Amino acid sequence: MVKNHSMTEANQTLEDLKADCEKCFGLCCVALPFAASADFAVDKEAGSPCINLQSDFRCGVHKNLRQIGFQGCTVFDCFGAGQKVSQYTYKGKDWRSKPESAKEMFDVFPIMRQLQEMLWYLTEALTFNLNQKILSEIQSALTETERLTFLPSDSLLELDVVAHRAYVNDLLLQTSELVRSKAIHLQGKGKKRHKNIGRGADLIGANLKDANLIGANLRGAYLLAANLRGADLRKADLIGADFRDADISGADLTDSIFLTQAQLNATKGDIHTKITARLTRPSHWTK
């Protein structure tokens, strides 16, 4: 029988899925490409070290990333893929001292990141009050996903990540439906629900101030620069939602579903914004 994790146990597990840059070879600063834009000050090709990466694999401008045009770096999360690839897959041998393995390492990193991201969502899903059948399926998916992360590099490169993600996503969709339907039912005839909200909705710049979004399906929604001040997002599914520059000052996200640190980092919030204990309040939010 699969037991529902306590929140404390889940938080401890989720801690292992957070980036530990001290144990990484700066993989996100090398493996991934980016283009000059509002998020990045310069262009960079995949496999080419960022101009700010130092010899010890640390970022030379980490404390000033937003101020000098590298906001994109502050909203990226590898879910612990960096340290796992660096310390487990490649046994602590970095791409500078072993240049012959550099390209392979850079190719493995984004695959590992996807697997680690799935582990984050599956681990969170186990904290929900669900029926035994779906909990067992989630646990099986988590066990299998974790097994995949420990495969050797050549096996990881051959892995059909798309198929595995589809399998995991189906479970996450079922989880979302169950959690959100309960939330909406318990809410009853409370605050009037906001209309025209749904999966993949175009809400760029939308005025959703004080909106009742309890149990809303905001998967993949475009919420760039949206006004969500005072909005109630409890039990709302936020997986893949784009929150860049969205104002969530005073909003309630205490138990939003599948919210990540990277999404939170992309927003504008304040001391009145309520968030789950598993995430950290971004330093750039207003006091």
Rank of each mutant, 00 (worst) to 15 (best):
F258I: 07
A221R: 05
I257M: 14
D210G: 00
I257E: 09
S86K: 03
T175M: 01
E9R: 13
L253R: 03
S155L: 13
N129E: 13
S256P: 07
A163F: 05
A246P: 09
A46N: 03
D252S: 05
S97V: 07
T280D: 11
N207I: 04
V161P: 01
R96C: 03
Q83G: 14
K3V: 15
L264I: 06
L32W: 01
L172G: 01
K274T: 07
S136T: 10
E137A: 07
N227E: 05
A201T: 11
V2P: 15
G69D: 05
L253P: 04
L32K: 02
E124D: 10
L171S: 04
E146C: 02
I239S: 13
I275F: 01
V85W: 11
N169A: 08
K133Y: 07
T8K: 14
S140E: 12
D232T: 00
Q114M: 12
P33K: 07
C78S: 12
H194S: 14
T254M: 10
G215W: 05
I184H: 02
P282N: 07
C28F: 08
N212S: 02
P282E: 07
S153A: 15
I275P: 01
L224I: 14
Y88Q: 12
T280V: 12
R234D: 00
S155G: 03
D39Y: 05
V161H: 01
N196I: 07
L279G: 10
S176W: 02
L115W: 06
I51H: 08
A241S: 11
P152D: 02
S37Y: 03
D154V: 08
H62S: 08
F40E: 08
S136R: 11
P99T: 00
F25A: 14
S37Q: 05
L203F: 04
L186F: 13
G82W: 06
R165I: 08
K191C: 09
K63S: 14
F106G: 10
L135T: 06
N196E: 15
M118A: 15
D210I: 00
K182N: 14
V61Y: 05
G92Q: 09
A226K: 02
K103T: 13
D255R: 03
D56K: 09
S136E: 13
S6H: 13
S55E: 15
S101E: 15
D255G: 00
N212C: 06
D94R: 01
L53K: 01
C24V: 02
L238A: 06
F57V: 06
Q116V: 01
R199T: 13
K18P: 00
I197S: 07
S256A: 15
D202R: 12
E177Y: 12
E15H: 10
D160C: 02
P99Q: 01
T89G: 09
C24P: 01
S48D: 09
L171G: 00
G188I: 01
V162S: 10
L173G: 05
P49R: 00
S256M: 09
K91M: 09
